[in-house]
Design a protein around this nucleic acid. Structure first.
Length: 423
RNA sequence: GCGGGGGUCGCCUAGCCUGGUAGGGCGUGGGAUUGCUAAUCCCAUGUUCGCAAGAACUCGUGGGUUCGAAUCCCACUCCCCGCGCCA
């Protein structure tokens, strides 16, 4: 959620942001509601003031055993006015909060203005020279090596589910273990969060529209499956005032992720690239405003180093205004070269949400007890989403005789295995 | 799941039975006093609206009763203790 004061004080800032992001948003309605709401608040407070004053004078008069008939009479009138005002303000309040919560985050200056993902800016490219000459896609490779079963998964769970088998199960664990070790080396505190969250918590870290498109709800419970550990990590410190000197918190999180992918029908239907369930090791950082950009770059460089170590071709892309996610103020994507698709595809995403999540979750920090509190900044980055990364590994490490070489850094996590061969 | 106890301002705690609009302590900031430090005393110490004066809100959450609710009633929730069930 953005700072609601901006609506009143600097609406142009919002209008620019909305234009740059190319999103439809009932902006003038929000302006009207904001003004209306303010008026109603003042009116309501005036009535409450009358009520409080009357109640006080009733108390006083009763103490002196005077008659309170006149006050009771007036109180009745005030009560009636309050009821009719409430009916009015409930509707305004509801619509206002819907809008203020669904307006996207402000963008940072350095975000390139553009119309679509075509305007994303490639910043760095790595390992271009090792692009594979053989170009089978991961589904063919994994099938012929006996590493996945998509048909049976479809039978029992539907599209976008999978069985991992044999060496791919091991590789999945290997990637996870390597990622956790890597983060510990870099000073992260390891966390495994709850996989389900209450509405209050999860709505703090995502925007309303995403509820329907990405999040699974548990029937008859106030619980939602996390779409990423970011959702749990953002809300972990909900309603807390943190000690400034303890910041930053750098968490290395492991969790499965559950996504509806409702907005992506027909897209990436092959294999395990876009699925309803996958495992991810995630970086989540809580810091203060002055340090948030530096933390963002730091997180990106750690992620870069991870993929350099895995020795796959990839590039870093700064997302344009139109492609940047709604809760983020600036996002870098890591795109791996996928020989089977003959293009770069996103395998990790590194975002600075600044105070957008913290505001809604009321996560603040301060140096001393009666200093003014400041909202924290939250940042998140994939370290590794194992299924997508395995797509990249399978396709980039394939050989001319259908086998797949195991990346060097993963071998010690797979009992020294060097190659996955046709049986 | 059952029974009992509990959730009060950054932290601790009083108030709840007997309704009148949150008191104290700690910590922190400012001030006074004092050779210095310490101690002592005074003021301040949540959120929102408002240029301000001021006002409203805030006692786990949401309803209800009442002129008036931290206080009474109902539902929910979380924590602690005991019992049950259980990987």
């Amino acid at each position: 959620m953005i700072d609601p004061k901006i609506v009143k004080d600097n609406p142009n800032l919002l209008q620019d942001m909305l234009r740059n992001r190319k999103v439809d948003f009932p902006f003038t309605e929000l302006l009207d509601l904001d003004r209306k709401r303010r008026e109603l608040i003042i009116e309501t407070q005036n009535l409450r003031h009358q009520k409080n004053t009357l109640a006080q004078s009733i108390a006083n008069k009763k103490k002196n055993q005077e008659s309170v008939d006149r006050e009771l009479d007036e109180m009745k009138k005030v009560g009636e006015q309050m009821v009719s005002l409430e009916n009015n303000s409930d509707a305004v309040e509801k619509r206002y909060s819907d809008l203020i919560y669904s307006i996207p985050n402000l963008l940072q200056q350095s975000v390139p203005i553009g119309d679509s993902e075509k305007d994303n800016v490639v910043i760095r490219t790595y390992n271009d020279f090792i692009k594979s000459k053989v170009k089978s896609d991961h589904v063919d490779l994994a099938n012929s090596l006996g590493l996945i079963d998509l048909e049976r998964a479809a039978k029992i769970s539907g599209a976008r589910f999978y069985f991992l088998k044999n060496e791919l199960v091991l590789m999945n664990q290997a990637l996870t273990n390597y990622a956790l070790d890597f983060l510990v080396e870099n000073g992260y505190q390891l966390i495994q969060p709850p996989y389900m969250l209450k509405n209050d918590a999860i709505k703090g870290s995502i925007i309303m529209d995403d509820f329907e498109d990405v999040i699974y709800k548990i029937e008859n419970e106030d619980l939602y499956m996390i779409g990423t550990s970011e959702h749990a990590m953002a809300s972990m410190h909900m309603d807390e005032i943190l000690d400034s000197k303890d910041l930053p918190f750098r968490y290395g999180c492991i969790s499965p992720c559950f996504r509806k992918e409702a907005g992506a029908h027909g897209k990436d239907m092959k294999g395990i690239f876009r699925v309803h369930q996958f495992e991810k090791v995630e970086q989540f950082v809580v810091t203060d405003s002055p340090n948030s950009s530096a933390e963002h770059e730091r997180m990106l460089s750690i992620t870069e180093r991870f993929y350099q170590n895995l020795e796959i071709p990839f590039r870093i892309v700064l997302l344009s205004s139109a492609d940047t996610g709604k809760v983020s103020s600036k996002t870098y994507d890591i795109e791996a070269w996928m020989p089977g698709q003959d293009k770069y595809r996103e395998i990790a995403s590194c975002s600075n949400c600044i105070d957008f999540q913290a505001r809604r979750l009321r996560i603040r920090h301060r140096g001393k007890v009666n200093e003014e509190t400041q909202l924290v900044h939250t940042l998140n980055s994939t370290l590794v989403a194992t299924e997508r990364t395995m797509v990249a590994i399978l396709e980039n490490y394939q050989t001319t005789n259908q086998s797949v070489i195991v990346p060097t850094v993963l071998r010690k996590y797979m009992g020294g295995m060097k190659e996955i061969k046709v049986k």
